[in-house]
Design a binder for these strands. Structure first.
Lengths: 157, 157
DNA sequence: CTGATAATGGAAATGATTTTCAATAATAGA
DNA sequence: TCTATTATTGAAAATCATTTCCATTATCAG
């Protein structure tokens, strides 16, 4: 029924096979949800979204798959301080939708921002290079988050 | 018995009292450990360090105190992906020891780096200002971490 | 010194994530 | 296409960091 993503459907086959992973219904469903989702889904969110179509995919599998995807670098695992991990499809640091996060410490609202990203990314790349050399690290990723209080939460006081 | 910190001992009194908090033995012990510790302590680490001197301070209190300190901005609560929160004494973004983190995703080793910090902080301040205005956020803090694989872990393969 | 109440600890509860294990399904090769 | 190998699975149980409960204790303003 869904059509748009048919073209893309295959691109993660290779990524899986190449690492000896098998491509299963559950994994496809999870990737499908993640790749379309706006926002930041928890394991349970994903489980819920998948359940109607794949009632036979358990929460355990969701966790296991997210772990695999995260290790493959296809998904970012994020912590916004609300006690559960959140997952976000990785479009790659150069991807069209690369963004950083602005986190409200009161209500846990998250704003994805792309403003200023260019300067940030440029600096980050430099820093990444420098750090990698100095500390002999193979740097694969970075995380930037700003924390504060959103307007609604400020007003409530 | 300890002498060096006598001078500083008082500086957090005010911070507590000002917010209606009471200053207790346990809280002092926890602050003391945190202010001296290199590295990134978990709640249990702190509990262990305190226990010999204050066997009557429970883990629950450690958690509660860390929560308070974190809310007061005196301590940063960090997540390095190893399943437990880590805490770090906040010397303030302008403090002498401000640093960011380089995290090995294999062995969870953490490197605190201060290189490049100046440029980073400058950019961050700008970004912070811009974001704060655009999204009406009162930004209080930021987090920057780089993830990668350290040399030892690379060599193991 | 004393009352109001913030803070405490220990045990029990919580809740996200992991592990276990026998059953199942994906894939490579015949 | 069929089969053997072995990765993957779901459900239930186990883990384990963190929180909550509640009766007791300690801090500190007056």
């Amino acid at each position: 029924m869904p059509r748009g993503e048919c073209r893309g459907e295959g691109w993660w086959h290779g990524k899986f096979r190449g690492c000896g992973y098998r491509l299963t219904l559950g994994r496809e469903a999870i990737l499908d949800v993640l790749s379309k989702a706006e926002g930041h889904l928890s394991a349970e969110d994903i489980y819920m979204k998948i359940h109607p179509k794949c009632p036979n995919v358990g929460l355990t599998t969701v966790y296991r798959t997210l772990d695999v995807l995260s290790n493959l670098g296809m998904v970012y695992k994020l912590d916004f301080g609300d006690g559960r991990a959140r997952y976000e499809f990785a479009e790659g640091p150069k991807g069209a939708h690369h963004h950083h996060h602005l986190v409200c410490t009161e209500c846990h609202k998250i704003i994805d921002y792309t403003d200023f990203i260019d300067d940030e990314v440029e600096l980050l790349n430099q820093t990444e290079k420098g750090l990698g050399q100095k500390y002999k690290f193979k740097i694969t990723n970075h995380l930037i988050q700003f924390y504060g209080v959103c307007q609604e939460c400020s007003d409530k006081k």
